[in-house]
Design a binder for these strands. Structure first.
Lengths: 91, 91
DNA sequence: AATGCTTACGGGTCACGTAATGATT
DNA sequence: AATCATTACGTGACCCGTAAGCATT
């Protein structure tokens, strides 16, 4: 499980549509399919139904809040690190 | 910034020694050097002094607690996901 | 036929190991 | 010389896009 997978997962949860989610992620639809497949393999279970919609499974809904929190924390930490780094480089 | 980088970073913070940290991470010393270099590039600043020891910089110490929390949260979420997936597969 | 997801394939990047080099003690 | 980190180089995995295939409506 890597962070870019988590990003794609959360967008797809919102869109419930591979094409639209891929567009929002800035990647192609097949790439998103592959990324989600890898995440599902890493976890060992399906995260989305495919038909008729890309609806999150119960498993996906259960872990979604945790992954949202992780992504937010990561973005904050990265931003903080870059800011501190920038400030230190002024000395 | 990806999660395996974060893992390596935290181990190196503890060991303050590339060889030992690499061994604990299960990778070679040159691979650890590369991984840390990438993380430093992603952030924009040095995370470790190299001589005489691989001592964490102030920047590294400042973000270490955040990254520890992220890693713990990630491991918990992944474990939870695998457990739920396993239980569902019994149905 | 149209829409939507998956599979197939080729190219670039990154992770990794081994070997060689550089720097410090 | 010994120790420790970096650089060089080759291999394999992964991410990505385009194109083709399959399924549902």
């Amino acid at each position: 499980m890597e962070l870019h997978h988590v990003r794609y997962f959360l967008v797809l949860c919102e869109e419930q549509h591979f094409s639209k989610a891929a567009r929002r992620c800035g990647i192609s639809q097949p790439s998103l399919t592959n990324a989600i497949k890898r995440l599902e393999q890493s976890i060992g279970g399906a995260l989305f139904q495919r038909r008729p919609r890309a609806a999150p499974t119960q498993l996906a809904l259960a872990i979604k809040p945790d992954l949202e929190q992780i992504l937010i924390s990561t973005e904050l930490a990265h931003r903080k690190a870059k800011r501190l780094s920038f400030e230190r480089n002024l000395d």
